[in-house]
């Protein structure tokens, strides 16, 4: 930070625009106030926040988005994987099982029909998305710098124990607003406040979900079908098979 007074400190933070400090016509040069934008464009500096808030807000949105994705995964698991679960978030019911039949040859040479129960959850890909990487490109204008008075004592204490130097000045708060990205000769430049590029991928299996699936897998079971069950099944099925009981 230079020796400029706060009023003159309306400097576009370099975010690829390469404009010299104070050289832009982004409304900051004349008065430095948040309401000094050109009249023909919406005021992008409606809210002046601390730089930390400004940077934090989109990151907060990313975290929120991941949380929503996780909730969607949870709803999917409940509605598809468990019996009698809609979108509610109450107690989980029993695992939804699909039943299959197979024939098994016993040691005595007889054939036996066996029912295999497989949890539906282990048959489906479970959608779980996560943000693989996010690229945030901010164009901000520093409106004001101020030291934080409430932290001054703390800072002073820290400074006395450390060697003072070019980097030893107490930190300041930067107040900033999103600003237009200025391109030379482009008067129509869109209010490019924040560029965000996300890459989404199927998430690695979270530990909890892996455990759930392992439990579901362990629920895969087999049992010999009794004569009655077998007959009931076959009457619909139409393919009667011999029984050796």
């Amino acid at each position: 930070m230079s020796d400029e007074t706060p009023e003159d400190a309306a400097v576009p933070v370099p975010a690829g625009n390469g404009e010299p400090p104070g050289g832009g016509d982004d409304g900051g040069g004349s008065s430095g106030g948040p309401s000094s934008s050109r009249g023909d464009l919406p005021d992008p500096q409606g809210s002046v926040l601390s730089l930390a808030q400004l940077i934090g807000a989109p990151i907060h949105a990313l975290v929120d988005a991941e949380a929503q994705s996780a909730m969607a995964t949870a709803r999917f698991i409940r509605s598809v994987g468990f019996v009698g679960n809609g979108d509610g978030m109450g107690e989980l019911g029993d695992l939804q099982m699909a039943r299959f039949k197979r024939r098994r040859s016993n040691a005595d040479g007889s054939d036996e029909e066996v029912e295999v129960q497989i949890p539906l959850l282990s048959m489906l890909p479970i959608p779980a998305l996560q943000i693989k990487d996010a690229e945030l490109d901010y164009t901000v204008k520093i409106i004001q710098t101020e030291a934080l008075p409430q932290r001054q004592a703390e800072i002073n204490q820290l400074m006395t124990t450390k060697r003072q130097g070019p980097l030893g000045e107490p930190p300041a708060t930067l107040r900033a607003a999103f600003a237009r990205e200025q391109r030379p000769g482009d008067r129509r430049s869109v209010d490019m406040l924040l560029k965000m590029k996300l890459r989404i991928e199927q998430a690695d299996m979270p530990a909890g979900l892996a455990q759930l699936l392992a439990l579901a897998g362990e629920s895969t079971g087999q049992k010999a079908v009794t004569a009655t069950e077998s007959e009931e099944a076959q009457s619909e099925d139409g393919t009667r098979e011999s029984k050796d009981d």
Partner: peptide
């Protein structure tokens, strides 16, 4: 699974067939 085709294990030749009548709820969800 939904069409009731037998699923055959390439390793051992086991055939699994979905039981529509006892898996109605699961197959509907599927």
């Amino acid at each position: 699974v939904l069409s009731g085709q037998p699923i055959v294990c390439a390793g051992c030749g086991l055939e699994l067939t979905a039981q529509r009548e006892t898996s109605r709820e699961a197959l509907d969800a599927l």
